[in-house]
């Protein structure tokens, strides 16, 4: 198998003395979709936030595209251009229009010309049915629309990998599908993704592999289908049962 796009070795993360993640090891290959599952408080958010430096970690090593990630500010700024991330709270910039939200990072961070970024932003918006919302402000959008814009905003940076942290968790039920479909499409386009989700059907549909976090340690790293049909540990089985799966 080719070299992993992302590899995590012996990663440990603590808040003060409180160790949250212990000896985390996994690889993500190009084009792979990994579902990161686990109970509330097991450390899913903390883990994916350490992957782009939003949270510092204390031990271990991260490699991206074969290179060791030096945990310092300049490296993180570089890496964040390659790893997109979308959060549960959509967090669009309310002072900018939808279009400006999308164009901000590509023009200011990636220093691309606005004339080149804008048509691309427009067509990304159109592809998720939001073409006519380009000039609106976030306040004028529904939760589901905002979240779709947040995903487009991350994609406009041409990331090599996407991290999703429960992006449908605060949406009204009728808004969830549209956002999930967007991620399904991305997976089909071979986007490399790590997806934290409580939507088990979606995870099963979209993921190639499941990482199961138990109290800060990865206790299962299995092909997705196997994880759902024959949960590898008692804890995973219990977890799936608790999700009514």
């Amino acid at each position: 198998m080719a070299e992993a796009l992302l590899s995590v070795r012996h990663l440990e993360k603590a808040y003060q003395k409180n160790v949250i993640l212990t000896d985390i090891n996994f690889d993500v290959h190009k084009g792979e979709v990994v579902a990161l599952l686990g109970r509330s408080g097991s450390g899913k958010s903390t883990l994916i936030r350490t992957l782009n430096g939003l949270e510092p970690f204390q031990k271990g090593e991260l490699r991206f595209a074969g290179e060791v990630v030096q945990p310092k500010a300049a490296t993180w700024l570089q890496l964040r251009q390659k790893i997109g991330m979308v959060f549960q709270s959509y967090d669009l910039f309310p002072n900018l229009t939808v279009l400006d939200n999308i164009c901000l990072a590509p023009t200011k961070v990636a220093k691309r010309a606005r004339a080149e970024v804008e048509p691309e932003a427009q067509s990304l918006l159109a592809s998720v049915g939001l073409a006519e919302f380009a000039d609106r402000y976030p306040r004028q959008l529904s939760g589901g629309q905002k979240q779709r814009v947040a995903i487009v905003r991350a994609l406009a940076m041409h990331p090599e990998m996407m991290l999703f942290d429960e992006v449908t968790a605060s949406l009204d039920p009728e808004m969830v599908r549209g956002v999930l479909d967007m991620m399904v499409d991305l997976a089909k386009q071979d986007m490399t993704m790590i997806v934290v989700t409580h939507e088990m059907n979606f995870a099963r549909q979209v993921a190639d592999r499941v990482l199961f976090l138990d109290d800060g340690t990865i206790t299962a790293d299995t092909p997705a289908e196997a994880f759902f049909t024959a949960p590898p540990t008692a804890s995973a089985k219990e977890f799936l049962a608790s999700m009514n799966f």
Binding site: F87, D91, F93, L104, A105, K108, A110, R153, M157
Partner: peptide, 23 residues
């Protein structure tokens, strides 16, 4: 200003200075 905006801005690669200026 919601803290989440800063996080999502950082995740996009914006520097503090850029966040200050545009957000």
């Amino acid at each position: 200003i919601s803290k989440g905006q800063l996080e999502s801005g950082r995740a996009l690669g914006l520097t503090n200075r850029q966040l200050a200026r545009y957000v």
